[in-house]
Design a binder for these strands. Structure first.
Length: 183
DNA sequence: TGCACGATGAAC
DNA sequence: TTCATCGTGCAC
């Protein structure tokens, strides 16, 4: 169990997205450790990516995306769910990886397939927005992988408005895993 | 100051 | 396919 370094996040977003698969997301809350194995992610490549929030420019909400890598970008969606993202690449690049599904590891209640449910089960809300993922209470760690991971590439979910960006296969998940949000 | 809409999930 | 529910971004 080794916490990911700043350098891990400060790289090409697609590479970071793919390598996040199989890693463990950990949130320590009230002395209790909640953890899930990341099995599905989506890459949001920056202001030029019409599906990315940062394509709206630097606003109070998207500020975190424009900040340094290795921080959490948490936002409210549809007025009722939160989505958890990891900021990637150098400061100002405004790219991130959305965590879409995890496989329960410890102390997760309810389903975890889908970005809203991941946050619900992990107790992630807007208070964790801009939180440093190199902290001790909210971070991502690598674990010794038993079998090699086979990665499936698919178009991202719910971004049909993003013109040609909607077609790009920037959603990645572990082949055959039972906890991904959609087939 | 108002309003349309979303990186969702569950029900119908 | 519809709805719950509200912050954000943009039009006026």
């Amino acid at each position: 169990m080794e916490k990911l370094t700043r350098a891990f996040y400060d790289r090409d977003t697609i590479l970071v997205a793919r390598e996040l698969l199989g890693k463990h997301l950990v949130h320590v809350r009230r002395g209790k450790e909640h953890a899930g194995r990341i099995v599905e992610v989506e890459a949001y490549l920056g202001p030029h990516d019409l599906a990315a929030h940062s394509s709206k420019g630097l606003t109070p909400r998207t500020k975190v995306m424009f900040g340094p890598p290795g921080h959490a970008y948490v936002y409210l969606i549809y007025g009722m769910y939160y989505c958890m993202n990891v900021v990637t690449e150098r400061e100002g690049h405004a790219s991130a990886v959305l965590l879409r599904a995890v496989e329960p590891v410890s102390n997760l209640k309810g389903r975890t397939q889908g970005p809203g449910l991941v946050c619900q089960a992990m107790h992630i809300d807007k208070r964790l927005n801009a939180h440093d993922l190199l902290s001790d209470d909210f971070y991502i760690a690598s674990v010794p992988e038993t079998n090699p991971i086979v990665i499936v590439k698919r178009p991202r979910i719910g971004v049909t408005y993003a013109k040609h960006w909607a077609r790009r296969r920037l959603r990645f998940y572990i082949a055959g895993n039972l906890f991904i949000s959609l087939l």
